[in-house]
Computed example of a mutant assay.
Amino acid sequence: MTRWIFLAILFLTAAGVVVYGYLGGFRKPDVAIITTAKPVFLIGQYYNGSVRDEAFGPLFRQAQQLRASGAVRGELANIYYNDPSLTRDTVKAFVGLIVADTTSQKKPDGYRYRVFPAGQRVVQARTTTSYLLAPNKLYPAIEEVVKQQKLKLRQVYLEQFAEEGPSEVLAVVE
């Protein structure tokens, strides 16, 4: 009986490792210090409050639905105004979609535009890992480079989780 339990545990562990590898869990992100060349425009909604608040989660789903319906063309993205990897309670975020500009599409009711300005010095972390695993890969990679280069984070992060292509986080540094 214990032999079968051992084999079942072994099989489940192996299956977990295979799935983790398939999702890109073993890939290391590419990290670079760059200056943003052009502004990034987002359409979305601002949120300042508890991570556990029932109003926070639906913002992501609403942005996804806006994109899926074709009402707005763009990639899912967020700007965080505090470190989301360290946030335990309060989050300040702009949740929405990256758009090409602020004039070519109709802005839905309740949505606003934000700009992630050009000319900012940022730590750019990119990975082709699944968006399910990407945040846990990108933020530690950023922290490592910031620590090695003795940089100071300004606590502004642009996250982009593209449907096709790499996921990316830009962390503004001084």
Rank of each mutant, 00 (worst) to 15 (best):
Q148A: 15
V145H: 08
L151G: 10
I5C: 07
E144S: 14
Y111F: 15
L158V: 09
S50K: 12
D30Y: 13
V18Q: 02
F41L: 12
K28C: 01
Y131V: 12
W4A: 08
L76C: 11
Q148C: 04
E143F: 15
T128M: 13
A171L: 12
V122R: 04
T90Q: 13
R73Y: 11
I34T: 15
D109G: 12
R112I: 14
T87K: 14
Y81M: 11
V99F: 07
A118Y: 03
A63P: 09
F26R: 01
A63K: 10
T36L: 05
G57N: 14
E164L: 10
L42N: 03
E75F: 10
F11H: 06
G96R: 02
K147Q: 13
V40N: 06
V18C: 03
K38M: 09
A77N: 03
G70N: 05
I5N: 08
V91K: 06
A37L: 12
T103N: 08
G25H: 04
L97I: 08
F60N: 01
A100L: 13
V123F: 07
Y113P: 06
S50Q: 10
L158E: 03
G165K: 06
Y46R: 15
A15T: 12
I43M: 10
K38D: 11
K137V: 04
F11Q: 08
G57Q: 15
V99E: 07
A55D: 11
K137R: 12
F116T: 07
R154Y: 08
S167I: 09
P140N: 00
G16T: 08
R112G: 12
D53Y: 11
R154E: 07
K137Q: 13
Q160G: 07
A32S: 10
T87F: 06
D53P: 11
F11E: 00
K137I: 01
Y46G: 14
Y46V: 04
Y81S: 01
E168S: 15
P135N: 01
G110H: 06
Y113S: 05
L59R: 05
L153R: 09
Q120N: 08
P39G: 03
L42V: 03
V156Y: 09
V146S: 03
A134G: 05
A8C: 13
L23V: 14
A37G: 07
A14P: 04
L133D: 05
I5S: 09
A68E: 11
Q160T: 11
L23R: 12
V19T: 10
R52E: 14
D109T: 10
E144W: 04
A37C: 08
Y113I: 13
I34P: 01
V51D: 00
A15M: 07
P29I: 10
K147P: 01
G96L: 02
L133G: 00
K38C: 04
L59T: 10
G70A: 08
V18R: 03
P108S: 06
F26T: 12
E143P: 03
F161H: 12
K38S: 14
V40M: 08
V99G: 02
V115M: 08
F60C: 03
V115N: 08
P117V: 07
Y113R: 06
V95I: 13
P166N: 13
L66E: 06
